[in-house]
């Protein structure tokens, strides 16, 4: 069916849709200001740094997920999504911890093996989705379960301490007075940003996700970009594993579930903050930091621990509902 003439938005967005567009940001800023006035020490350099510190692993996996969403389109069911990234992060952490602590393998060799495992997962996901045409949501969910299973075998489902100086540096080190993890993550975000938004390859990847047909007409191969998006996503899982090891001073079983939840929330929340209303790198990063800030804020305010989950979940539903409402008002 040809595109109906009504798809043409009338001169500028209407007042209503502009209000709806601004609402998520207003709600979040409002919440943060409220928390700032009510939570002791919240508006302090220490807390800000804490927020950044705690959001580091989520930010890194969000980079991977946003790239997959950009390459595959933002339809949650049929579009691009990769739920296996947290599992990749956890298995890499497990491999490194197990080898370094329990078998005295040199750190570099352990890292190389972890990287190999991550690439294997990325390639499998990429091939299954692009070559076999499997649904990304189900494929990567199954991969998540499988990889977590293997992680349990590798670590015998036990906690393994790691005291390698490099990992300790990521945890406690500082660069220019700012936590090393935060600085390194910021550098990662900048590198990814350049790669996705400032290179031909990155722009083409976004085109493929935005409209598969448009990209094909322009001579681009959608499968190629989607495949590499999955590989890059697995790579971000590998990178995140270092921050997981640093944060936990080792590998603890069970960290993947929370990481996956926060990754998905932050990434799709980020879309509500981006001016183009699509998943972007900065949006995802901002989403991850805001989710961390809110949850720390609630804890600092002493909100009953039994209620925090409900408040967080409702806020996210509100933001997503507003995004859905905004696109309805526009059409």
């Amino acid at each position: 069916m040809p595109m109906p003439a009504s798809a043409r938005p009338e001169s500028g967005a209407s007042g209503l849709s502009r209000i709806i567009d601004a609402a998520p940001l207003v709600i979040f800023l409002g919440m943060l200001i409220y928390i700032g006035f009510n939570a002791p020490n919240f508006m302090s350099f220490g807390t800000m740094q804490l927020v950044l510190n705690q959001s580091v692993p989520v930010v890194v996996v969000c980079l991977g997920l946003s790239i997959v969403v950009m390459a595959g389109g933002d339809d949650v069911v049929s579009g691009g999504i990769d739920l296996s990234i947290p599992a990749t992060a956890v298995i890499c952490a497990g491999i490194i911890a197990q080898l370094v602590t329990n078998t005295d393998t040199p750190l570099l060799l352990a890292i190389a093996l972890a990287l190999g495992a991550a690439m294997f997962i990325g390639i499998v996901a990429g091939l299954m989705v692009t070559r076999l045409g499997m649904t990304p949501l189900l494929t990567t969910l199954a991969l998540f379960v499988a990889v977590v299973g293997v992680t349990k075998v590798v670590t015998s489902s036990r906690r393994i301490n790691v005291d390698d100086p490099f990992i300790i540096f990521l945890r406690d080190g500082e660069i220019l007075g700012i936590s090393a993890g935060v600085v390194i993550t910021l550098a990662l975000v900048l590198v990814f940003y350049h790669f996705i938004h400032r290179t031909k390859w990155g722009l083409n990847l976004q085109a493929v996700g935005g409209s598969c047909e448009a990209a094909e007409i322009s001579g681009l191969k959608p499968g190629h970009f989607l495949f590499w998006a999955f590989v890059i996503a697995a790579f971000t899982g590998f990178l995140a594993s270092f921050f997981l090891l640093a944060r936990g001073s080792g590998s603890s079983p069970g960290t993947e579930n929370n990481l996956m939840l926060e990754m998905v929330l932050a990434t799709f929340l980020g879309a509500a903050f981006s001016p183009r209303r699509v998943v972007t790198l900065w949006g995802a990063v901002l989403g991850a930091v805001l989710v961390a800030a809110l949850s720390i804020g609630f804890k600092t305010m002493g909100v009953n621990v039994f209620w925090t989950g409900l408040i967080k979940g409702s806020l996210i539903l509100v933001v997503l509902a507003l995004a859905a409402l905004s696109s309805r008002v526009k059409s």
Partner: peptide, 9 residues
Amino acid sequence: AVDGGRDNQ
């Protein structure tokens, strides 16, 4: 009060 939700991390 802070609750780890049964996640050691």
